[in-house]
Design a protein around this nucleic acid. Sequence first.
DNA 1: CCTACCGATCGGTAGG
DNA 2: CCTACCGATCGGTAGG
Lengths: 216, 216
Amino acid sequence: MQEHSKTPRLANRRELIIKTAARLFREKGFEATTVRELANAVHLQSGSLFFHFESKEEILLAVLEGGLLRAVAILNRSLHKARTPREKLAAIFHGHLKAILEEERDAFTIILRDWRTLSPRSRKAVIALRDKYEEHIDRVLREIAHEPFIPKDIRLFRLFLLGALNWTVQWYRPGGALTADQLAERFLSMVVADKDVAGKQRPTAKQTRVRAALRL
Amino acid sequence: MQEHSKTPRLANRRELIIKTAARLFREKGFEATTVRELANAVHLQSGSLFFHFESKEEILLAVLEGGLLRAVAILNRSLHKARTPREKLAAIFHGHLKAILEEERDAFTIILRDWRTLSPRSRKAVIALRDKYEEHIDRVLREIAHEPFIPKDIRLFRLFLLGALNWTVQWYRPGGALTADQLAERFLSMVVADKDVAGKQRPTAKQTRVRAALRL
DNA sequence: CCTACCGATCGGTAGG
DNA sequence: CCTACCGATCGGTAGG
């Protein structure tokens, strides 16, 4: 932890560039963000960015790879202690919303809008990570698929659910009325029987039976 | 309808430019599409585009305004003969998916990705049209909101449903296994009691009661 | 990590 | 609607 050690300073600067780029790319788009803007934001001359990165695209790649790797970790942590089908589905809702709305919102927003600008090589790397992330979700949903009363077409059910979750990046604003966790619980209650969601009004025995039968 | 009348030729050329621009902007993004590419695609010299439009942005504006205006018409047509709450919800599913997946996919994709590049003036015009479109959907959902057993938080329910529908632009490919109408029916069956959806296996009386009670 | 700079490309224009 | 062109800006580089 020496002040004068060069490696940590370089790593810190690199991380600062990546973090700042993530915000700018999300706010303005990758192509609309110039290297000069990014350089100014981290108090460098524009040419100096290329002391840390070979190209503007390499910065984008670093943003996306870092974000997706951390998102996988978030999802894993959320899924780790889930046991019952309901708990597993809840873990997906909570972990996924935490990843895309709070921790790694930049990466998910950018990948959705700007993935086309990546070179084939970079694109392959990013898609591999994205597939890894989605595999976790797919695996859990396939486990739940064998539960009774789940829609037959599990693929469409998955696309339906993930669509509703993913779309939140379009309207959710941090610091609003709901935290990501609260939003996850509200959404869960729309597709699955309440157990003790939010601890509020307990449903009648009949309602619980009915809704459990219908959805999970 | 004379061959030598100039007005229709001009109008046709203008429409061709708008239609071609819509496809290119969707495929490559607005900023990544150069005026030279667009000009080549319609067999003009790049400078000649500015005989028809004042700026590249004016082309984008024409693409979005045209698409949104036609989308409103599609939605109106779909909602026109809907009477019961279920029919109204079905009309939204069918009309909205037809608009965003088939007829006006370009405009919805572009507006989602590139609206930030519009000038404040253009943005205002586009947002006004978008609000008009969403008003139709909102109005119907508010009517349905008073039906029993609809989730209390109608706003979140709306965001949940529209999220699932809107997200289809990310994965649906025309010419695949499902038409937009078929997809609408499948999605409908996930949130509302079947009446005679697809005419397939009729649910039991109990199921119908249960699902109707739960969702609509 | 800065200074100084470059080739390429962009949207757009003048004049016909 | 074309020809010929321009000023601005872009990502990136050489040399220190």
